[in-house]
Amino acid sequence: MTSHAADLRRKVEGELGYWDEEQEALAELSPGFLETWRRMASVPVRKNFLGAKNRALVGLAASAAATHLYAPGVRRQVRNAIEAGASAEELAEVLALTATLGIHACNIGVPLLLEVLEETGRHEASGPLTERQGELKADFTRDRGYWHAFWDGLLELDPDFFEGYLDFSAYPWRHGVLEPKMKEFIYCAFDAAATHLYVPGLRMHMKNALGYGATKEELMEVLEVVSLIGMHGAEMAAPILREELARYGST
């Protein structure tokens, strides 16, 4: 390793807490590019509004989200979080919170389904909530701390599934250890990620986070951490590129 590459490794490990095969390959292929990424990635580390542990938990949510599933990122953020003092309960809770991403199929699909049913004359006007539906709405509002209009259609069309999702999504709120603000940061993380970009959820969870005492600096840092997943494509490809260049004698 050249002195420049060794210095780059020292900085990345010191600031970001890892240096894996992916960074090794990038340092060999394009050290200047890796250096520009390091400078960008170190900004939230230097400003440190979230703190090292919470920053790693946000990074874990972005990597583990069903729309991304970047295993190297999951492993490095788990390690960073543990080294920063995260407990097994906190790490497991991040995974539970992140698993709620799948409900966005209903958040997007149910309003469209209702529109299509209305257009084709197959939607009967809904009356007042039944006693059970009213109880489920009250339970959701109590356990999750909010209600949004996009839940109305799901509650109308399939209260059984709504009840199942309520118990699933409320588990971290009923039994978890992360503070409410941090829970909302996790939702913001996977909603804002380039592999998801779920605007209604992001807007709502930003508002919820502010209601729980979050600052604009903390929310900005969540967005900055999640922005770094764009590098994962280069990380995944760099070792492959290095191998194929070696195969063809182009190193």
Rank of each mutant, 00 (worst) to 15 (best):
Phe190Lys: 04
Val45Cys: 03
Gly73Asp: 06
Tyr187Thr: 12
Ala214Asp: 02
Lys47Ala: 11
Phe140Lys: 03
Leu50Trp: 08
Ala5Asn: 13
Leu197Pro: 01
Pro31Ala: 15
Arg132Trp: 09
Gly211Arg: 04
Gly109Pro: 07
Arg38Gly: 02
His148Ala: 15
Lys207Ile: 08
Leu26Thr: 05
Val58Thr: 05
Ile82Asn: 00
Met1Val: 11
Glu163Gly: 14
Gly109Asn: 10
Leu26Asn: 02
Val45Thr: 10
Phe161Tyr: 13
Leu97Asn: 03
Arg10Pro: 00
Val116Phe: 05
Leu178Gln: 03
Leu29Asp: 06
Val78Met: 14
Gln23Trp: 11
Arg247Pro: 00
Gly134Thr: 06
Met204Cys: 00
Gly17Glu: 04
Val94Asp: 01
Ile103Tyr: 05
Thr98Gln: 07
His123Pro: 00
Glu156Ser: 06
Lys216Arg: 08
Ile229Met: 07
Gly134Phe: 02
Arg79Glu: 15
Leu228Val: 00
Ala27Met: 11
Ala56Met: 04
Val43Ala: 12
Ala66Asn: 05
His196Glu: 05
Ile103Gln: 04
Thr195Ala: 14
Leu97Phe: 09
Arg75Tyr: 12
Ala41Ser: 13
Phe49Ser: 14
Asn107His: 15
Leu241Pro: 01
Arg76Phe: 02
Glu244Phe: 11
Met231Cys: 01
Val43Arg: 11
Arg10Met: 08
Arg39Val: 13
Phe168Pro: 04
Ala5Ile: 14
Thr130Lys: 04
Leu91Ile: 15
Ala41Arg: 07
Met231His: 05
Glu35Asp: 14
Leu136Phe: 10
Glu13Tyr: 01
Ala170Tyr: 08
Phe161Val: 09
Leu129Cys: 01
Trp37Gln: 06
Gly102Ile: 03
Ser63Trp: 00
Gly211Lys: 04
His104Thr: 13
Cys188Gly: 03
Arg142Trp: 01
Arg247Ala: 14
Ala96Tyr: 02
Glu89Arg: 12
Val45Gln: 09
Arg76Ala: 06
Asp158Gly: 02
Lys11His: 11
Val110Pro: 07
Glu22Cys: 10
Ser87Val: 13
Arg75Pro: 00
Gly17Leu: 06
Pro128Arg: 10
Glu221Asp: 08
Pro72Gly: 10
Ala125Gln: 13
Ala62Pro: 04
Gly145Leu: 10
Ile103Cys: 03
Val110Asp: 08
Ala88Asp: 14
Ser3Tyr: 01
Tyr165Met: 15
Phe185Ala: 09
Asn80Ala: 15
Glu13Asn: 01
Gly164Val: 02
Val116Gly: 01
Val45Met: 09
Ala62Ser: 10
Arg144Asp: 00
Leu117Arg: 15
Glu217Arg: 10
Ala192Leu: 12
Met206Asn: 00
Leu34Met: 07
Leu16Val: 07
Phe185Ile: 09
Gly213Leu: 03
Glu131Val: 13
Thr67Glu: 05
Ala64Asn: 00
Pro172Arg: 04
Ala214Gln: 04
Glu218Arg: 07
